[in-house]
Amino acid sequence: MAKKSKKYTIRKLINDIHLWLGIGSGIILFLVCLSGTILTFEEEIKNLFTQDFKVAQSSNRRLSLEQLSESLSKEGTVTSVTLPIETGEPLQFNVKTSPKERRGTTYFVDPYSGEYQKKQKSQLDGFFLSMFKMHRWLLMDTTIGRPVVGIATIIFLILSISGIILWFPKKRRWKNFKPGFKIKFSANWKRINHDLHNTLGFYACIFLVIMSLTGLFWSFEWYRDAGSEVLGTKVFGNRGGGPKFTSALSPNARVKTFKEILEISAGELNYKGEVSITIPSTDKDVFTITKSNANSWSPVIKDKLVLDQDGTLMHKEIFRDKPLNVQIASLIKPIHMGTIYGTFSKIIYFFACLIATTLPITGTLIWINKLKAKKKKKKKVAFA
């Protein structure tokens, strides 16, 4: 009597989709996830290989920002200054050392002595730049690498969703769920490998879905446009710095000093936090002040002021007062990078990315083990 063929179920279809998409994209996903893992603590790692600029605090009075800016003007055009929360830390001035320089160079400045030092290049700058290019474009030309990474990210999103579906046991009983929450290290290596793929993938899944959904904003314009439609506001729409403001300063008006600008800013944004000031370079430019609240739930959130050169408040932008959709759109980048909650979220993202890096390896081993098991079974049937 012939055996009845097993019914091809929805679960089997999902399993096949998960398997073949994973096998087909494994190498690309491994490289993208590996580079993402390394990039999580890029700044912290690079700082280990550079010498700190120490502030020699003394009884001397702090020099004014005008004096410090004037001292730095010999290096180029001073465009902005960042004042740290702690008084013992150096000020950071941004200086355009040449007209061709787009972003400028950071200089650390001792506010007491006026001594300054250009931000040192780390020995690992080249390495992390390669990791960035790997993560975004697989070290290829952007026109080729960007869509390839984008397609791989879509596949990874499908793998994450299908994986969580397959994680659920066929019979919904607690005793069937329990094995999916732990790794049985006392078992043989095949079972351990299966548990590493199944269990760790489950714990990392929600973060991997978030990374995939946000990462696609950089890969495809159509996705960015669709996301903007869903959110009801432009994603990455504030890259140019928002609305432009021009000074309305009358010819006889007095230009405020940095100290006066800071006093006005402190009155408008009355809390402790790091302050950055964009310095006007022409008569038509204005002061732009951004400030982060030291007690905020996120270190990346900033409030913004625009002041005319005479101190007139032209614009005030408080993050918490923005509509929720605008807040979400402005946080796409820190959500993707894991900086949204500072070190805490970066640690979570590091381990999630590390798990994601192992999934193509453990998944491929599961597939190879199943192929070997099928071959052994066929041999037994043949000799039976």
Rank of each mutant, 00 (worst) to 15 (best):
I161V: 15
I161C: 08
I161K: 01
I161M: 10
I161S: 05
I161Q: 04
S162C: 09
S162Q: 06
S162D: 11
G163F: 07
G163E: 10
G163I: 11
G163Y: 06
G163V: 09
I164R: 03
I164D: 04
I164P: 04
I164S: 06
I164M: 15
I165M: 14
I165W: 14
I165H: 07
L166E: 07
L166W: 04
W167C: 09
W167L: 11
W167M: 12
W167S: 10
W167V: 10
W167N: 06
F168K: 11
F168L: 14
F168V: 15
F168M: 14
P169G: 09
P169D: 07
K170D: 10
K170N: 13
K171E: 15
K171N: 15
K171V: 15
K171W: 10
K171A: 12
K171I: 14
R172D: 08
R172C: 02
R172K: 13
R172I: 11
W174A: 09
K175A: 12
N176L: 06
F177C: 08
F177Y: 15
K178Q: 12
K178W: 04
K178Y: 11
K178C: 04
P179T: 03
P179Y: 06
P179H: 04
P179N: 03
P179Q: 03
P179K: 03
G180D: 01
G180W: 00
G180M: 11
G180T: 12
G180C: 09
F181P: 09
F181E: 09
F181V: 09
F181K: 07
F181N: 10
K182L: 14
K182V: 13
K182T: 14
K182F: 14
K184G: 00
F185V: 09
F185A: 06
F185I: 10
S186F: 03
A187N: 09
A187Q: 03
A187L: 00
A187R: 05
A187I: 00
N188C: 03
N188D: 15
N188F: 03
W189A: 06
W189K: 12
W189N: 10
W189P: 00
W189H: 05
K190W: 02
K190E: 01
K190N: 09
K190P: 00
R191Y: 02
R191T: 13
I192A: 00
I192C: 02
I192Y: 03
I192N: 00
I192R: 08
N193A: 01
N193V: 01
N193L: 02
N193K: 01
N193T: 08
N193H: 03
H194D: 04
H194I: 00
H194P: 00
D195L: 02
D195F: 05
D195C: 03
D195R: 02
